[in-house]
Write a protein that binds this DNA or RNA. Structure first.
Lengths: 273, 273
DNA sequence: AGAGCATATATGCATGAGGCATATATCCGT
DNA sequence: ACGGATATATGCCTCATGCATATATGCTCT
């Protein structure tokens, strides 16, 4: 039994079109005269934190700004949302345009909207996280920058970005390198992205997104250790991963290593039981 | 030993004011002529999912829309962001205006920006989650509506909203009640909010936000069971909570119950070690 | 007042996952 | 053939959790 509300307008309408419901003539009339621009509007941007793990280090794709504001500082790839696309679509479009990356894992992270975060005016940015394997990351036409997260637990917050130069393969030099200047609030965005990635790693199968299609258990462990910033127990890690149901042995083995070759696995979506 | 990069500009400038850096005259000039409104902009709204637990059921604050579009349907409290406030500030302001709630736990959830989600035009909404104890929720001038989450694991997705009438204290009638019509994509927003709340409950001390300042372990367990939608082991729950370091015994006991009164605890922020 | 009841609170034990050590397997280079 | 390095497998210890049992403490009813 559906209750019917009294008509707000006395006009007769066809039976199948409710007087005031979704799609009604009444609503159509309302929408026709509705002025959305009566309110002032901010600009909406989308920024993407592209992560990868190279040589055991967590890296983020950053480019050097050539224009004002914050000219010369490092910034996340991003841009303004278009009126005909969803936020996810905007992130994927910008990822393809600015980094040449397609078919990557993209997920919305958080929306930053402090009034003073951009000197150009009121710009709200919807930050996203993308995960790519090292080979595709290196091939992308973006500067590679290492991110060193100050290990203060799970705090998030700002993150130090260290240029990846000669120090790349020298941990001592890396530790002494000075942090680069980061544009806008992007250091804070990266900080939250690292925090989120660390959290997801424990209870969702997301580490595979940072590896090629086939990989060894050691490579997967390296990913986890680089993201977490500490070492994990090898045996229990192997047991846990193999028991998760997300791994499938390919029967192939790694080649060209000087030790016993490990078996290659691939990621399988766990059956929905 | 810190390496120094060569200057990009050869012009002599005062030592403290870089030629092109943040706050430089060059940047000022750029900003003065920058036209942010060259791009079309969407409207930015903020919606809040206010949760509480009453009589063992997870409830959400919804009101019936009196205007087009989706007139007569149930909707989340919300509104448009102002140009001089942050997103969190907007959420708190709207919570106070629309529900009379202040000093509550508020956290950003997710931003919804599908092009067709609002017939009035392009409106991006930044959804938030707020947690209130039952007493304050009931006193707020909003309709109470029960939310029944179809227990399909962690899927999120749309959620059935069931009117809380005579069925409130009768689980059988509640199960048979038909779902109410929900405006816009708000059923989907609530679904994601439930999913997020369930996830946070396991590894962050957030359940306390749904209780008064002093509470018994049984009340806390009821919160967890209502949010998770299943039963938890009483003994291990007590052990885990007491060992978490978040609980502090007050020495007081509950009154007016017909059984042995339980001790009252209060929430303490865990000391930073 | 005392029995009965419902719940809180405490203790002991079984089970399973993770940390750790040891043993064996398999590649490469010399 | 042998050593080096790592993969892979197995067994043991510890701890968190699930489960059962026992005691404590308020109320209600007779």
């Amino acid at each position: 039994m559906v209750k019917r509300r009294p008509h707000s307008a006395a006009t007769a309408t066809p039976l199948d079109l409710p007087a005031t419901g979704r799609g009604s003539a009444d609503e159509q009339a309302f929408l026709a005269q509705y002025r959305l621009d009566a309110f002032e509007r901010p600009s909406v941007a989308v920024d993407i934190v592209v992560f990868t793990v190279i040589d055991g280090h967590l890296e983020v794709a950053l480019y050097e700004r050539t224009e004002h504001p914050d000219q010369g500082r490092l910034a996340l790839p991003g841009g303004f949302m278009r009126m005909d696309e969803s936020l996810d679509d905007a992130a994927r479009r910008l990822l393809a345009d600015k980094a040449g990356l397609t078919d990557v894992f993209v997920e919305q992270l958080y929306t930053f909207g402090e009034p003073g975060r951009d000197p150009r005016g009121r710009i709200v940015t919807v930050a996203h996280v993308a995960l790519v394997d090292a080979a595709r990351f290196s091939a992308a036409p973006l500067l590679r920058r290492l991110v060193r997260v100050p290990w203060s637990g799970e705090t998030g917050g700002d993150v130090d970005v260290v240029d990846i130069g000669a120090a790349a393969f020298d941990d001592d030099a890396f530790d002494e390198a000075a942090a680069c200047a980061v544009a806008f609030d992007h250091a804070s965005i990266i900080g939250m992205a690292v925090k989120r990635l660390r959290g997801k790693l424990d209870y969702t199968p997301v580490g595979f997104q940072l590896l090629p299609a086939e990989f060894t258990l050691r490579q997967l462990q390296d990913i986890h250790e680089a993201v977490r910033g500490d070492v994990v127990n090898k045996d229990s890690f192997r047991r846990r991963m193999l028991a998760s149901g997300h791994l499938e042995a390919t029967g192939n083995h790694e080649r060209g290593v000087t030790w016993r070759p490990a078996e290659l696995y691939r990621f399988v979506r766990r059956s929905a039981v």
